[in-house]
Design a protein around this nucleic acid. Structure first.
Length: 420
RNA sequence: GUGGGCGUAGCUCAGUCAGGUAGAGCACAGGGUUGUGGCCCCUGUGGCCGUGGGUUCAAGUCCCAUCGCCCACCCCA
């Protein structure tokens, strides 16, 4: 076949889609308990939305967006992430009216034009949640606790929570200057880091090159340069985490890619996805984002979780992935000729109307082949229809488990299937 | 964008080193059983050997190019 799915995109087929459904169902149920409402925003947004919110220097904006040219200045792009669209919708639809706190979650596809790799695709899916209208550190801990419960519910083990504070506009610039001075004086950095040192020094902290590690380890920590408010916020946040009993490690090197983050940032990582694709989910606070979009001040906090990565983790967990079996027919109608097919056709319809899973094959197979099919599908009963049955009005019903067979009147079939 | 691996039946893969009629298992279809599944046995369908070019009497196999998939780097979910 010469038509294939586009690079980096994948079909989710029966047999694996059920795991996705289970994840989504558990998520919806849980998030509802925490007061989140679902929001569905368009997959297309003005390119500008992402340029302004994520930052022009980010990889996403620089090279990873699928952009469709449109009227000058109004190009549109497939969304590369979920937070900016939610905030856009929040502002556009005045969702802040009424209560001070707005909790929203979403599930859907995101698009980034990168080289596909294990756990990273061009169309991928995220579950995300955003809390708008509060800058309280407690809500941050609540989100993490909720995620903790979700992963636990799903049977994900071995996930570590990393937390950090990246400061705010009043303290971060000073730190970045100090950092940059130190970095420009260093000679043992990789080529990328030398570039980053000039353009975006914070990103150096994220470098995974082994050769850069010793240098990075000796750099000043942002946590030592937070302003009083940020320091208090971060301390309070950790107190709440302790209170709920969620364990974490403070990771000053955790900077994250997007410009809009302030104060608390976090990731949940696992070593079961490889050394670099280790982030299962990530997020943080973005109090200035609304203003970047020319909205009124509005604090925000949220996360995005990579569904493909979650599925990858769970697929190795036999009880969830390998345990799936397609639904088994309760009764399979096998027929011998065209007349009996018509009878089977109407009988199947009647039983389905009673809520029974009735299976009828149109492959023109021999009776033997139909029996084999019924067996392979795991049907509990098979009804064989031939001239005898039509003449007498008594239908042969075979229980596949033990091979016993009885003859029943049409009206009795459903009860028989149900009872056994 | 850079590097590595792999493209042979619907699926999983042998065959490539040493050029000589295209293979196995599973799946599918028919039969052994004229109206009855599983186990077993027999038979059968199914391949531009990714694509194009080159070398050769002869290419799945050697050479060149190209496309695709996977993995890794970068970065992230």
């Amino acid at each position: 076949m010469n038509v294939r799915s586009v690079r980096g995109t994948h079909d989710i087929l029966p047999g694996s889609v059920e795991l996705w459904q289970e994840i989504e169902e558990k998520t919806r149920l849980l998030f509802r308990r925490y007061g989140y409402g679902e929001i569905r925003t368009p997959v297309l947004e003005e390119t500008n939305l992402f340029c302004r919110s994520l930052g022009l220097e980010t990889d996403i904006v620089q090279k990873e967006m699928y952009t469709i040219p449109a009227r000058r200045g109004r190009d549109i792009s497939l969304r590369p992430e979920g937070t900016a669209p939610v905030v856009r919708s929040y502002l556009e639809n005045h969702l802040n009216r009424g209560s001070g706190l707005t909790k929203l979650y979403y599930v859907g596809p995101m698009f980034r034009r990168e080289r596909p790799q294990k756990g990273r695709y061009r169309q991928f899916h995220q579950i995300g949640a955003e809390v708008l209208g509060s800058d309280h550190p407690g809500i941050e801990a609540e989100v993490m606790e909720m995620l903790h419960v979700l992963l636990d519910d799903l049977g994900v083990r071995g996930v570590r929570l990393l937390v950090n504070s990246v400061g705010c506009p009043s303290c971060r610039p000073a730190y970045v200057r100090i950092l940059q001075e130190r970095l420009l004086a260093e000679s043992d950095l990789c080529a990328d880091c030398r570039k980053r040192s000039r353009r975006n020094p914070l990103r150096v902290l994220d470098c995974k090159q082994a050769s850069c590690s010793p240098v990075i380890d000796n750099l000043p920590s942002i946590l030592d340069h937070l302003c009083r408010e940020c320091r208090d916020h971060f301390r309070r946040f950790r107190e709440f985490l302790d209170l709920i009993g969620v364990s974490y490690s403070v990771t000053p090197r955790l900077v994250r890619g997007l410009d809009y983050y302030v104060r608390t940032t976090f990731e949940m990582v696992t070593d079961r996805l490889g050394p670099t694709q280790n982030a299962l989910l990530g997020g943080g606070r973005y109090d200035g984002l609304s203003e970047l979009l020319e909205g009124p001040p509005a604090q925000g906090f949220g996360f995005g979780l990579g569904l493909e990565r979650l599925v990858l983790l769970l697929s190795r967990n036999d009880q969830l992935a390998a345990g799936y079996r397609s639904p088994r027919p309760e009764i399979f109608f096998a027929y011998l000729n065209e007349d009996s097919l018509e009878k089977a056709f109407t009988l199947a319809r009647d039983l389905r109307r009673e809520g029974i899973f009735a299976y009828l094959d149109f492959g023109g197979r021999s009776l033997r082949a139909q029996m084999r099919l019924a067996n392979r599908l795991g049907s509990r009963f098979v009804c064989v229809i031939g001239d005898d049955e039509i003449r007498t009005g008594l239908y042969s019903i075979k229980r596949m488990a033990d091979g016993t067979q009885t003859r029943l009147q049409q009206g009795r079939i459903s009860r028989h299937v149900r009872s056994a």
